[in-house]
Amino acid sequence: MAEIIDLVLLGMLAITAFNIIFIKDLFTVVMLFGIYSFLSALIFVNLDAVDVAFTEAAVGAGISTVLMLGTLALTGRKEKASSHKTILPLLVVCVTGAALIYGTLDMPLFGDPDNPAHQHVAPRYIEDSPQEIGIPNMVTSVLASYRAFDTLGETAVVFAAAIGVLSLLGLPKRDRATIQSGLKSHLVLRVVAKMIIPLIVLFALYVQFHGDYGPGGGFQAGVIAAAALILYALVFGLPMATHVVPPRVLKALAALGVLIYAGTGVVSLFLSANFLDYSVLAEDPVAGQHIGIIAIELGVGITVFAAMLCIFYAFAGQTERKNIQ
């Protein structure tokens, strides 16, 4: 049953991607990209990658689509016909494709339990991590404890993206709250939004602290909290949103999150253990792991929330300015 679903989903994905190549109207391309992300997240669920589906749906379909729409609002919808011929790109693509197909010939069988990928390092993550780190969600235990350095690097990437967008577009000012630029005429939308946004924030907090037991964690919680505020900004207008969460606070929060994460590592340095080794944070190593993981997930959640919202403010600030002229 799962194979049939997998095949059908992959087929739909291929059709969507095929259409994206040939459609000239950029608005439709972005809409289809939203479907593409939804479908790939669905395939991740089908392939048992639950946390990844969570992140791909929230980040890939949510934030990317909203940012692309924000860019299109400034750069116009129509893609002009490209004059240069398409033989060279086609050639390069075919050569790379052939190399990839050549590579897949020796690949281990799909889904085969005794693949080399499952032999060497993975068994310890599956068997020992619930005892060693004491949380059922193995992905969070690997993400936060075994390979914590990767996640630190990733938080730095999100911070670097926020810095990049900040330096390119700058943040909107906070004072112009007078202009009612939200979806003025949609009264129904404003009422429903008032009801839903608290629910979403509550759900974000649930995901943040439920990361150890079910799908979820710092990234997903940060993105969902940012989505709640983006929804508020879309419905009630950016000036109102900048009053709720001022941009300066966001810059400080993004910096704070990275410092919380690296600070937890440095604390274990002072307790004469290796960097990011949580077992010294409490007498009982497993309790130490718990404290460490909760601390860094909080750091990650804060950074991702502040960075994503900062990026949205920077983009929305552009459209506001253009709107006013």
């Binding site: 979806l183 005429s185 939308l189």
Partner: peptide, 20 residues
């Protein structure tokens, strides 16, 4: 509850925007 709140609103907003 979430879907009963959001999908009718979305369709209403869509229709209103199309009309607009």
């Amino acid at each position: 509850i979430f879907m009963l709140l959001t999908s009718p609103t979305a369709s209403h907003a869509l229709a209103k925007s199309a009309r607009h």
